[in-house]
């Protein structure tokens, strides 16, 4: 049965659970985005802990920083495309530099908005946010991991950027089996021929690619690198050394994202062939997310093909 609950909805539920448990400091800030961010239930149920900034992302993030400096735990939930670029300096100065506990939740990230065009795509957000000293970057893969990540972030006191997509995505984990350790990547599958390191909504197709490869007697490791910053370098090194070939997969531009970071670590620590599967350095083709992914090979077959190419270069 197709999934119906998007990761952003799960995060809203976590924030509502916190408010329901009596946490008066959890605050959600939206930029006329409560609907698109799936935060309407929070706004309706906890209006005293919900702040509408209007279509003003700079102000939304600045306000959140001010509230955080006074003890609040604000989550700014806004389309990733606007949140990470319009308010980039607020993220840098008011959140990271001033060390305020602001969680920046970029919703409908990557190419989620499909045919709305490049203005609404956020294929630069990993690079942009990760470049800020003190800013952490997380891309959860499914609803179960999103829940655990949001719960962990609620309990800490530093700023972070979290990107989730617009639509429901197929599970990687289950309610009963979702291993999660903060800032440690998850080994979704272990194999000795190639290491596929993916983040966000690319983890599920990476797992599907591993199944395709298994039918060819190629055993792939699949790493869920939901914690892009701080990158779990140890896991990258361990997987690269074990397999001798690496594929990095992400819904992001080719520069400065997961692939860049993985290649940097592998190059420094344990050189071996690395293939980076990304969106192009160009406005993407018009289409739904699945259509766009298929076009650029960001699907099971495309990932499997990249894995074969990486293995061939061993």
């Amino acid at each position: 049965m197709a999934k119906t609950k998007a990761n952003k909805q799960v995060i809203c539920e976590v924030l509502m659970d916190a408010a329901a448990s009596g946490d008066r400091d959890v605050v959600v800030v939206c930029s006329d985005s409560r609907g698109s961010a799936s935060m309407t239930p929070f706004f309706d149920t906890y209006p005293a802990q919900a702040v509408e900034a209007g279509i003003a992302e700079q102000d939304a993030v600045g306000m959140a920083a001010g509230m955080a400096a006074c003890g609040k735990k604000p989550w700014v939930a806004s389309p990733a495309c606007f949140l990470t670029t319009r308010s980039y300096e607020q993220a840098k100065v008011d959140c990271a530099y001033s060390r305020t506990n602001v969680k920046l939740l970029g919703v409908s990230g990557g190419v989620s908005y499909g045919a709305l065009g490049m203005s609404h795509h956020s294929a630069q957000d990993i690079a942009a946010m990760a470049a800020i000293p003190g800013m952490r970057v997380y891309l959860p893969s499914d609803e179960w991991q999103s829940k655990k990540l949001a719960e962990a972030l609620l309990a800490d006191t530093q700023c972070a950027y979290i990107r989730v997509g617009r639509n429901a995505v197929d599970d990687v984990y289950t309610a009963e089996d979702c291993p999660f350790e903060m800032d440690r990547a998850t080994w979704v599958r272990r194999g000795g021929d190639v290491a596929i390191i993916a983040c966000g909504e690319m983890v599920r197709p990476a797992l599907d690619a591993a199944e395709l490869l298994a039918a060819e007697d190629v055993e792939a490791t699949v790493i869920d690198m939901y914690c892009i910053k701080p990158l779990d370098r140890d896991t990258v090194i361990e997987a690269a050394r074990a397999c001798g070939a690496v594929v990095a997969v992400e819904e992001h531009a080719p520069t400065g994202g997961l692939g860049s970071m993985v290649a940097q670590v592998v190059g420094e620590e344990c050189p071996c062939p690395v293939r980076c599967l990304t969106l192009p350095d160009a406005p993407v083709v018009t289409g739904t997310s699945p259509e766009v992914f298929d076009h650029y090979g960001l699907n099971a077959e495309g990932i499997a093909e990249a894995a074969r190419a990486a293995i061939a270069r061993k």
Binding site: G62, A65, G66, A69, C70
Partner: peptide, 10 residues
């Protein structure tokens, strides 16, 4: 001023 608005709101 955005930060100040947040402080005053808090």
């Amino acid at each position: 001023l955005p930060v100040g608005v947040g402080m005053a709101l808090a």
